[in-house]
Design a protein around this nucleic acid. Structure first.
Lengths: 239, 239
DNA sequence: CGGGGACTTGATACTGTTCAATTTCCGTGG
DNA sequence: CCACGGAAATTGAACAGTATCAAGTCCCCG
């Protein structure tokens, strides 16, 4: 059984939206369609740290592909409970929560200055009807999100603090590696509070567990800079 | 902010698959398409309690709509961790986890004798290209699953045992109500163990918490028979 | 009617939370 | 460029909630 976080990388380059063209064009496609797809994938917007891409409750306009930077998505509940549902980096897609009711059920906020490709959903569906491979691509992306969420449910429902954090670090490592960055040394873009919220634990527990990993020689941490020193033993926590 | 479990009911009748026809036909559609859709939605299979609908690792053949009965889906991890990812009743769809890689990542098992409509996924996609409303319907269903999973992540990541169980009971209540059954009195189809696994707690904690609810006059429990006596106060646990 | 699994309940152990006190980091303005 | 101030992070100690272990009861299936 594979690592729950070992999902196939969703995009090897900086922007999956901009990969739609080469990934999704079947043979013998009309030139006009290419132009449409091209146009579709190049509506770009920039965000400063702390800017919201969309809020829970706002209407669906588009899906969003991270081109550069880092986002988090989170759901908020009336009773005050909040849950970070994911961290998104280059090539990953946000906004699929809104397709169900045409209203976003979570909010997305930039954790650093970022760029995003906007993919108007109506046009995506329309083009999907002409281009089966584009349609397939969209379905795969949505299904991946479901599989990823199941992995997070497994993590939240049945793992201990150390296992959760080990899984989290190795998942980040793998995603950075898939984008051509070092899998062993990287900067955390989020606070201990945000990590803890995502992993279902308090920020103090995140901090303590990181310190314990460091004492055990598994990682080196200095504030947001993390280095994975012993991936194999880190993996043994949850594999 | 709405109740995380207050998603719009996905199907009011016993089989959403069999609703595809009336829900998804735009005006002026060809007779042949209707026939195809009709054929698509009437491949029916029956399962005994304990039978598996699909296993993790098996190839995607179809999506499955529960026509009658009750299922659970669960993911399994090499380290022995297991997580129930959901309980499915009439009108709900299973199998979308497999669209991403064409391989199922979770398993589905019948908790009682059940009937299922099989929806060959390739044909669904194909028909979706002809019928925009069918396409839309499929997208909404997948998005709903994502939203539901986010709700479960919120539950697992930030709620206490009492809140989780209250949310679980009220969610079941609402889903039974949407199908024309009593929202206040119903039979649990799953064991304490399965409830606990789904909610990220041990079966003993489930049992104790149910007993506490009963002593508080919120519910009545006798084995699998549950009656909700005070929905408002039960709701106050997590709303 | 017998037997095994499901459930309940109690006592105890332990993981993670809470509260609190420092320390470190980093953005801002002088 | 440095100093300041607030946010972020670390660490400790006491506490709470849930898990674990164990014993006994109940229910249902064969």
């Amino acid at each position: 059984m594979k690592n729950i976080f070992s999902f196939p990388p969703r995009a090897q380059t900086s922007c999956s939206a901009c990969n739609l063209r080469k990934n999704c064009l079947p043979a013998g496609i009309a030139e006009g369609d290419i132009a449409q797809l091209e146009a579709l994938t190049h509506v770009k917007r920039t965000f400063r740290r702390g800017d919201y891409l969309f809020h829970s409750g706002s209407p669906l306009r588009a899906l969003y592909a991270v081109r550069s930077g880092f986002f988090k998505t989170h759901v908020l509940h009336a009773n005050g409970h909040e849950q970070v549902t994911g961290f998104q980096m280059a090539g990953e897609i946000m906004g699929m929560d809104a397709i169900s009711t045409d209203i976003h059920t979570c909010s997305a906020v930039a954790l650093e200055d970022s760029e995003v490709c906007e993919l108007p959903f109506g046009k995506l569906e329309e083009l999907g009807r002409k281009l089966p491979t584009l349609q397939r691509h969209l379905h795969r992306i949505m299904s991946s999100e479901i599989v990823r969420d199941h992995g997070t449910m497994l993590l939240l429902g049945s793992m201990h603090a150390e296992e959760r954090l080990a899984a989290f670090l190795l998942n980040l490592s793998q995603r950075f590696a898939a984008r051509g960055y070092s899998p062993s040394a990287f900067q955390l873009r989020m606070t201990r509070q945000e990590i803890g919220n995502y992993l279902g634990m308090k920020l103090e527990t995140v901090s303590r567990t990181l310190s314990r990993f460091q004492k055990a020689g598994l990682i080196s941490v200095r504030n947001k800079a993390v280095e994975i020193l012993d991936a194999n033993n880190l993996r043994s926590f949850f594999a």
